[in-house]
Design a protein around this nucleic acid. Structure first.
Length: 827
RNA sequence: GCCCGAGUGGUGAAAUCGGCAGACACAGCGGACUUAAAAUCCGUCGCCCUUUUGGGAAUGGGGGUUCAAGUCCCCCCUCGGGCACCA
């Protein structure tokens, strides 16, 4: 588009880009000795796909505005950037084009770095972190060894989520509605594999409790994490199976209702069900039910299954009353939650009620008072605020009280125990892929018949990923086909040994990368404790809400592990978290298939980086979804062009004396500074900051004739232009740098002190007061700002419109809110 | 089903502490400048009734509190997101 006012974004932007590349004045001060308060501003690092998308631009525009604002406020700001560079796409590209993953990844990084610079993002490249390079991933291996030593990393055979499209295992967090998080169309299969796990469950309680301290995190994210961890307090109770040595341990949150238990229900995959498989008739039914659950699980219809089950013909004894209850296998019992077995209390659990009704099992009520508002007895009572009946010595006790006492009773009797269960499972980190961190373990016949892992020692690190390998998607880990990698020497016996061929989940990389930024070139440790101590916690972390439970739970876990290893002192990685909204186009999420993808490069080419970024901040508050409208970007260009023209015109302005217009401009200026500063102080509604700057510019434009006529002093003009440029600096950095030079300021605008709003100068002499009669607006009267209640009221009464409304009426009450409004209440 | 978040003009939105609803933009419409267009500038611009003047209803819907409600309280609807046979 043609741009007026002599504003040539391409010229300005390439000029400053070159300067910023060359000089490092915008980087964080090295030390703690700089005397400034620190501010660690962090945006989530991108995956190097090869190109930034417009959502990135928004994310980083928010962070960069904050970083630059804090520079100007005098903070020592760490604003780093890196690359989450391991992962499957690199391998897929290799499969498709034959380009080695490393080469593909590094060239993508180079391309995206160029884009970042083109966008004018003020990142501290001196601390750049690239997770696929050995100087980073060796520390993943180092942490792994530490965790192994601490019993936090272990290997076990278990059912794992297998994505056929990725040809690898997925963590529970990477399975969404039974489908792969990267392949929506692909159902995840369950496979039995021996895998590496990290014991995140050990920290489950602390991860839940810590959420209460994270007041700077969105409630939404905290709730999601709470749900994900799924902490549930309850009781284990042992039911001994009659005529067998077997005990079925059930988990219940309502041990108080145990006198109402009329059956024990076990999952088809429960160990006792396996035991029963020796009976052919039962085996068939059990297998059918396992298959049924599997199908339902895969199509995400587990909750929709009709509750079915069958009697095993066996009985178990309720330890509280010695009663025998039948043992059933139920399709609504999940093997992987609790103990995979429940006591069924149809009177007080909706699901048990449904099941019992279907099969005619008895319903025994043990909680009184369960009537509805109309006095009708309810079929069951799920609430735990009732009073027990027919429950031996606990009869008459409140449910809540009984829960504690009965659990204690069971514990004392040796047939039960208070417990806490979690939905959260240990984090499966093994991946059968090439492009990831090798797991620093070997297997040797000298230990456990070659089945037990032997840890390498620190001095063996890094275990380097072999570079020249051919990648295929068949037959297990690609690394398994590289003899030079697999064959190694046993650290224990010195004989020939085999390396672990799985690699680590890439979420390991992103679990601690932000610590590395503080000491990115440390060759002897992941980081220096003192440096982390200075910078942590992150003051502000910014990213998409899609990471609420993956990255953000893993990295909290990692922080706690590192703390317990004595490496850091903080309990949580980030004091404040901000999740920005999505960028949408034509009302829908952008996607290649919809053809509504906005290219940042194209935007920069057409409108410049400054306008593109500024639009991303102007079009909506940052926490909300943003509809991308190219006309809006053009509008920002018009605005910048206007500023460009005015700054150019008045840069060397001399003469003039402040009349009313000069005073008005100064007043508007200080109002604007106040508004923009306020927006930065927490709410980040940059859309309103920018609009207030637009208002200021519109005022200057309207005042042009007066300025030209000498009614504004040079000092006022200068003050307005200078602060205007400073206020634009966080949003349009190239532009601001250029304008700073135009008005003859020396030094770097981003290091100049942020302007202070002078309240006295910002104050209006006169205010307009709305006048209402019975709450309805009648008119607006102008009064001196300092007017008292009487003056305001009499000014309002004096208005002829108001007077007309008051004729013949009785004024019951007059509400006067100074500087706000007058309301006459009349009859 | 449970838990978050949202719902305001043609569009993106503003109203931060209960005090003029629609700031600032985008789009539209009219005009100036121009041979013409672009760019720029000026004006206009929520809806309904009214020639004007003016009047009326209005922030998803319904109730309430208040002199005053987009904002607070209760109930409901719609959309987005998360969790879901979790015992």
């Amino acid at each position: 588009m043609a741009i007026s006012g002599g504003y040539e974004p391409a010229e300005i932007e390439s000029k400053w880009q070159a300067r910023w590349d060359a000089d490092k004045t915008l980087y964080a001060a090295e030390g703690h000795e700089c005397g400034k308060p620190k501010y660690y501003c962090l945006e989530m690092l991108p995956y190097p796909s090869g190109a930034l998308h417009i959502g990135h631009v928004r994310n980083y525009a928010i962070g960069d505005a904050l970083a630059r604002f804090h520079w100007m406020k005098g903070y020592n700001v760490l604003h780093p950037m890196g690359w989450d560079a391991f992962g499957l796409p690199a391998e897929n590209a290799a499969l498709k084009n034959g380009v080695p993953p490393r080469e593909w990844t590094l060239s993508n990084i180079a391309a995206m770095k160029k884009q970042f610079n083109r966008l004018g993002m003020g990142f501290d490249w001196a601390t750049e972190v690239t997770t696929c390079l050995p100087d980073y991933y060796r520390w993943n291996q180092w942490f792994f060894l530490k965790m192994f030593e601490a019993g936090l990393a272990y290997r076990k055979k278990s059912k794992v989520n297998w994505c056929p499209a990725c040809a690898t295992v997925l963590a529970n967090e990477q399975v969404i509605n039974g489908r792969c998080w990267r392949h929506e169309e692909t159902l995840v299969e369950q496979r039995d594999l021996t895998q590496w796990f990290l014991r995140i469950t050990k920290y489950a309680d602390e991860l839940v409790a810590g959420l209460d301290t994270l007041e700077g995190w969105p409630e939404k994210v905290r709730t999601m994490q709470r749900n994900w961890i799924g902490r549930s307090e309850g009781t284990f109770v042992d039911f001994n199976v009659v005529a067998s040595g077997t005990t079925i341990k059930v988990f219940t949150t309502r041990v108080d209702t145990i006198f109402g238990a009329t059956s024990v229900q076990i999952a088809p995959e429960h160990p006792f069900a396996k035991e029963l498989m020796s009976q052919p008739d039962l085996a068939m039914k059990i297998e059918a039910m396992i298959a049924q659950q599997k199908v339902a699980r895969e199509s995400d219809a587990l909750g929709a299954l009709v509750k079915e089950g069958f009697d095993t013909g066996r009985f178990a004894v309720n330890p509280f009353n010695g009663e025998r209850v039948p043992v059933w296998v139920g399709n609504y019992i999940l093997a992987d939650y609790g103990t995979g077995a429940i006591m069924s209390v149809p009177a007080h659990d909706e699901r048990d009620f449904e099941f019992a009704t279907r099969y005619g099992l008895p319903v025994v009520r043990v909680v009184a008072g369960n009537v509805d508002g109309a006095g009708m007895e309810l079929p069951f009572l799920a609430e735990d605020d009732g009073v027990l009946i027919d429950s031996a010595e606990w009869t008459g006790m409140s449910c809540l009280e009984a829960q504690g006492k009965m659990a204690a009773f069971a514990e004392a009797g040796g047939f039960g125990k208070s417990t806490v269960t979690y939905r959260l499972k240990d984090w499966g980190v093994s991946r059968q892929r090439y492009w990831g961190t090798p797991i620093p373990m070997v297997y040797c016949s000298c230990t456990g018949g070659g089945q037990e892992p032997i840890a390498l020692s620190e001095s063996d690190l890094p275990v380097l990923l072999p570079e020249a390998i051919s990648i295929t998607q068949e037959g297990g880990s690609p690394l398994g086909k590289v003899p030079s990698f697999v064959d190694t020497v046993c650290p224990k016996c010195g004989g020939p040994a085999k390396r672990e061929t799985d690699t680590m989940d890439t979420f390991v990389d992103s679990s601690w990368y932000f610590y590395r930024y503080t000491d990115a070139h440390n060759a002897t440790a992941p980081f220096d404790k003192a440096k982390v101590g200075y910078w942590f916690p992150i003051d502000q972390y910014i990213g998409g809400v899609e990471h609420a439970i993956l990255h953000l739970i893993y990295s909290r876990f990692w922080t706690k592990v590192m703390r317990d290893l004595g490496l850091i002192a903080n309990d949580e990685p980030a004091a404040r978290l901000f999740t920005q909204g999505m960028v949408i186009k034509d009302g829908a999420k952008m996607s290649k298939s919809k053809g509504n993808v906005v290219s940042p490069d194209l935007m920069i080419e057409r409108y410049g980086a400054d306008a593109t970024r500024m639009y991303a901040l102007f079009a909506a508050p940052p926490d909300r979804d943003l509809e991308w409208d190219e006309n809006g970007v053009a509008g920002i260009v018009r605005f910048l062009a206007k500023v460009h023209r005015l700054v150019g015109k008045y840069a060397g302005f001399a003469g003039g004396r402040d009349g009313n217009v000069g005073k008005m401009l100064l007043r508007k200026l200080h109002q604007t500074i106040g508004k923009v500063t306020l927006d930065f102080s927490g709410r980040w509604h940059f859309n309103t900051s920018i609009s207030s700057v637009m208002i200021l510019v519109n005022e200057v434009q309207s005042a042009e004739a007066a300025i030209d006529g000498g009614q504004v002093s040079a000092a006022t003009v200068k003050a307005v232009l200078k602060a205007l440029v400073q206020m634009l600096a966080p949003f349009a950095p190239f532009f601001a740098a250029e304008m700073w030079e135009t008005i003859g300021e020396s030094g770097v605008v981003f290091r100049a002190a942020w302007p202070e709003a002078d309240e006295a100068l910002a104050r209006e002499d006169e205010v307009e007061i709305p006048v209402q009669v019975n709450g309805k607006l009648v008119t607006v009267v102008k009064v001196a700002a300092e007017s008292g209640r009487e003056d305001v009221e009499s000014a309002a009464k004096a208005d002829e419109k108001v007077a007309a409304k008051l004729v013949g009426k009785m004024v019951v009450k007059v509400v006067v809110v100074p500087a706000k409004l007058v309301n006459f209440v009349v009859k």
